[in-house]
């Protein structure tokens, strides 16, 4: 494997897969897997934190639910039904809220995976290994996605038991398909944030800003039509808006989407765009940081 050596240097053997081939891909996948396992181990080493994070999604959901129900004095909203064909406030909010945690995956878990290593002091040690730096970020993505999925399942069970949800069981599979397409674009987004958080000192503010903007521009607790037209158009650049509309079409009885279009094509285009853009910026910041020598600074 000692290819491309500088002319005349025939030295120690190096056995490390590189380039586009199956052995190398397998090695990178294993690095992603091990990174996600490592993230679990570290997370579980802080049990109090882990517990708190486990209940927090439910806590954030509650005000949306209670507030919504107080507003309409029950769980039926005439106005909502006029807009999207279904008036069940609880089901509407819950189906929207499900993706909130996954926005968190992209923005916080992935976005701050590299920053976290900086905090642990291990970043340089990781960056001198031949594994791609992306694998570290993707390892975190895997960890956080699994984590969120478990959390969402528990949340679903609790809300279902307490309120009951009017969902079409048959729609779950196609909704999952849309979900996966959404996640791919969010991963691209997460890669972008992880790059930004490495070069910007106040990276958390950028992340918080992106998080809030994505939240406002997504039809999480209201249909898209209540947004001003400009905002509705802007929401098309985030995968969450088309994905939510699409998932609700499959999951909720009588749901008439507020914006119509080819959701699958839209999501595929967003996937390609966000992943490529994310990787590009990631690559550029990697070079920038190695030139500046600001890798280990927190």
């Amino acid at each position: 494997m000692n290819k491309n050596r500088v002319k005349g240097h025939e030295l120690g053997e190096v056995t490390c897969p590189t380039g586009f081939n199956w052995t190398n891909l397998k090695a990178e996948l294993r690095a992603i897997w091990e990174s996600s396992i490592k993230a679990w181990k570290i997370e579980l080493a802080y049990p109090v934190s882990f517990l708190r994070q486990s209940v927090s999604p439910l806590i954030i959901l509650l005000p949306f639910l209670i507030y919504g129900m107080v507003l309409v004095g029950g769980r039926y909203s005439e106005n909502l039904e006029r807009m999207v064909g279904t008036g069940d406030v609880v089901t509407f909010i819950f189906t929207g809220y499900v993706i909130m945690g996954f926005i968190g995956t992209a923005v916080w878990a992935m976005g701050f995976s590299i920053r976290g290593e900086q905090w642990f002091g291990t970043l340089e040690s990781i960056f001198v290994t031949p594994t791609s730096r992306l694998s570290l970020v993707l390892g975190m993505a895997l960890h956080s996605t699994v984590h969120q999925s478990i959390g969402t399942a528990v949340e679903f069970a609790i809300i279902y038991a307490v309120f009951g949800l009017g969902l079409k069981i048959g729609g779950i599979l196609p909704a999952l398909g849309i979900f996966v397409l959404m996640m791919l674009a969010l991963y691209g987004f997460g890669i972008l944030v992880s790059a930004l958080s490495l070069v910007l000192k106040e990276g958390w503010i950028v992340a918080e800003g992106l998080h809030s903007i994505m939240m406002i521009l997504s039809p999480v607790v209201y249909p898209l039509v209540v947004l001003p037209t400009v905002a509705q158009q802007a929401s098309a650049i985030f995968p969450t808006a088309p994905a939510l509309v699409g998932m609700r079409v499959f999951l909720i009885e009588n749901y008439q989407p507020e914006v119509i279009g080819n959701i699958f094509l839209h999501l595929l285009a967003l996937d390609a765009a966000w992943i490529l853009f994310g990787i590009l910026v990631f690559h550029l910041t990697d070079i920038y940081v190695r030139k500046k020598g600001s890798l280990e600074k927190y």
Partner: peptide, 23 residues
């Protein structure tokens, strides 16, 4: 540097993890 390893992981976990990063 004081912390170039994961203090919250065992020695074996640390080494196994980095081994995977060395492919």
């Amino acid at each position: 540097g004081e912390r170039t390893l994961y203090w919250k992981l065992t020695a074996r976990d640390n080494l196994m993890y980095f081994a995977s990063l060395y492919k």
